[in-house]
């Protein structure tokens, strides 16, 4: 990975605006329609929507865990998948083969390369009816993938900026590498909070954020969600439905928000996040003092707040949709498309 995001191809070649992304998707749909009319692709309706993307995300996670690769390779594979599907319709591909290939290439790029046989065998263990035994299929697909990526393959991920942000927090608190004591109204993220941020970032790969914004925007959004949204609930019991809170879903390891965005709105205004001004006379409880500190810090940075807000919204929408996620419909239609049954 090149050290500098700003001069990277991720920024110069693969960063969309909302508009250009919508246009790219429109083009893909137009191609899909044409191919459908010519009978070149299946007539089954396979929309590329949030549920489908959660499904693909989980496919990559499953395969990644089986071959025990580093998180960074999984993240890279997810962005490759997203990029690929801005150029080609999901109906032109075998999604199982797509994620296998993305992970295979990502492992090579992130220098934890796995033999093609290993990946194909593991993928076949998971999805025997969809992944061909013949490893050359993946080798072939790798070429198409590189082509659709325009051979731009280096990625910058938010994980590193997250750790950098926390380093800044540590410096602000005047402590370096020593035991952080979050209760001293410091911004330093506790191990739990860091884990929360990490999980939010993991989940963010389901969305378009990585082809819309620089990685640090996503890290800041994850920190904001962790510090502000979590701390604004007076009691941190994640099972309490009256509060907006975060928790780890034990069933699929993903992070979820247990409440609806309505509650979020009531949680944020007291903070007035982007001015950071709080009357000196106001007596603050400890959590809001920390939030104030954070918003002041954020306000003093040059981070694009509009982008951060957009990222947060995207994540909240994702989490609220995730609550109703059901993969059976997707599995059924993929089976009809790929196997004819």
């Amino acid at each position: 990975m090149s050290a500098d995001f700003w001069n990277s191809t991720q920024r110069s070649q693969w960063q969309f605006t909302r508009e250009s992304l919508a246009q790219a998707r429109k083009n893909v749909l137009a191609i899909e329609k044409k191919m459908g009319e010519r009978g070149e692709i299946s007539q089954v309706n396979i929309p590329y929507h949030t549920y489908m993307r959660i499904f693909l995300h989980q496919l990559i996670l499953k395969l990644g865990r089986r071959i025990a690769v580093r998180q960074i390779a999984i993240a890279t594979a997810e962005v490759y998948t997203t990029r690929f599907l801005t150029q080609a319709s999901i109906k032109e591909t075998n999604p199982y083969l797509l994620v296998t290939t993305c992970l295979y290439l990502a492992c090579k790029i992130e220098e934890c390369s796995q033999h093609i046989r290993t990946i194909v065998n593991e993928a076949r263990n998971l999805w025997p009816e969809y992944v061909p035994h013949d490893a050359t299929k993946v080798a072939e697909f790798e070429f198409y993938l590189i082509q659709e990526l325009n051979s731009y393959m280096v990625l910058h991920h938010p994980y590193r900026s997250l750790l950098q942000i926390n380093d800044v927090f540590k410096e602000l608190a005047g402590i370096r590498n020593s035991d952080p004591h979050p209760e001293d109204a410091s911004l330093v993220l506790s191990p739990n909070e860091l884990q929360n941020c990490w999980s939010i970032i993991n989940d963010s790969y389901i969305t378009d954020l990585h082809i819309l914004y620089p990685p640090h925007i996503i890290s800041v959004a994850s920190v904001f969600m962790t510090i502000v949204l979590q701390q604004s609930s007076p009691n941190q019991n994640s099972s309490d439905p009256a509060n907006f809170s975060l928790g780890l879903d034990s069933t699929d390891g993903s992070l979820y928000f247990s409440s609806h965005s309505r509650t979020l709105h009531s949680a944020i205004p007291e903070v007035n996040p982007f001015t950071g001004r709080v009357e000196a006379s106001t007596v603050l409880s400890e959590p809001s003092a920390r939030i104030t500190m954070f918003t002041r810090w954020l306000g003093a940075t040059n981070v694009d707040l509009e982008e951060v807000i957009d990222a947060i919204q995207e994540m909240i929408v994702l989490y609220s949709m995730w609550e109703h996620y059901d993969e059976s419909q997707i599995k059924r239609s993929l089976s009809v498309m790929l196997l004819g049954r």
Binding site: N7, L105, I109, R117, A135, V138, A139, F143, S151, V154
Partner: peptide, 18 residues
């Protein structure tokens, strides 16, 4: 490349693009 694209080809593309 029955076994996938050679690492040196991958690295060349990966780094020279950046």
């Amino acid at each position: 490349f029955k076994d996938g694209l050679d690492m040196s080809a991958i690295r060349e593309m990966k780094f020279l693009q950046e």
